[in-house]
Simulated assay, not measured.
Amino acid sequence: MTGQKKILIVFALAVFEFAGSLSVLASPPSPPPKLNPGLATIQTPDGFTIYAEIANTPDQRSQGLMYRTRLAPDRGMLFTFPEPGIWTFWMKNTKMALDMLWLDEKGVIVHIQHAAPICERKDNLCPRYRSNKPAVAVLELGPGRSKTLNLAPGKKLTIELP
């Protein structure tokens, strides 16, 4: 094989390899797999991620976090409603204190109830908690999490539903 043929073959192989790498670069990357399927992903303004179970039916909202004794620091429950309203919550049969954050249509916190205590009453006279401003969602977190995460009325959460 002559030197000129060798150079042409090496050149052709280099072009072929370069073209192949271009096709890999041109194809869009596939999105990363969702780590927590079925859960809402909520970003705080400071970049912390909360994964929340969704309660969007009357039965799910009624059950809420009843009978649970703890939540992981990055977990919560997101109650969603079809329209803005003054939604009332209570702690009947809930075995841990909770922070409750009422959110408007844009994900802005309109009210926080910090560490609502456990209610051990057997009747239906447990204290009720609500916002004075309309909300379309309520996020429940473990006690003290809203302070730890620097959350306050006026701060916006970014919510991605599954």
Results as ranks from 00 to 15, higher is better:
L141Y: 04
P162S: 06
V110A: 07
K95H: 01
N150C: 04
C119M: 03
T57A: 06
L8P: 04
M91G: 00
G144P: 09
P73Q: 08
H111L: 03
L149K: 03
P143K: 03
S23E: 10
E120M: 09
A152F: 12
M66C: 02
S23D: 07
N93Y: 00
M66R: 08
G144Q: 10
F18S: 14
H111S: 10
L35N: 01
V24Y: 12
A137H: 00
G107V: 08
E83H: 14
R145V: 08
V138W: 00
R145C: 02
E17Y: 15
L25T: 13
P37E: 04
A72R: 13
V110M: 11
V108F: 07
A137W: 00
A97E: 05
Q4T: 15
F48L: 05
V138P: 00
I159A: 02
A135W: 05
P82E: 11
R68M: 10
G76C: 08
L8T: 09
F16P: 03
S27F: 15
N132L: 15
G76A: 06
P117W: 06
L151F: 06
T158L: 08
A19I: 12
L103D: 00
G20T: 10
A72G: 07
T2A: 13
M77H: 09
P153V: 05
R75H: 14
P162A: 10
P58F: 06
Q43W: 14
D104F: 07
N56E: 04
T44R: 11
R70W: 09
S23L: 15
R70F: 08
T148C: 01
W90Y: 07
D59C: 02
E160G: 04
Q63C: 08
N93G: 02
D46F: 14
P28K: 13
P134H: 05
I159F: 02
F89R: 01
T88S: 12
L141A: 02
C119F: 06
I112K: 03
D104V: 07
K5L: 15
L101Y: 00
A12N: 09
L141V: 10
A55K: 03
A19Q: 07
T44S: 11
L161R: 10
G64Q: 04
T44M: 08
P31V: 09
I112R: 00
T41K: 12
A19R: 03
S62E: 13
M1H: 14
L151V: 06
K92N: 01
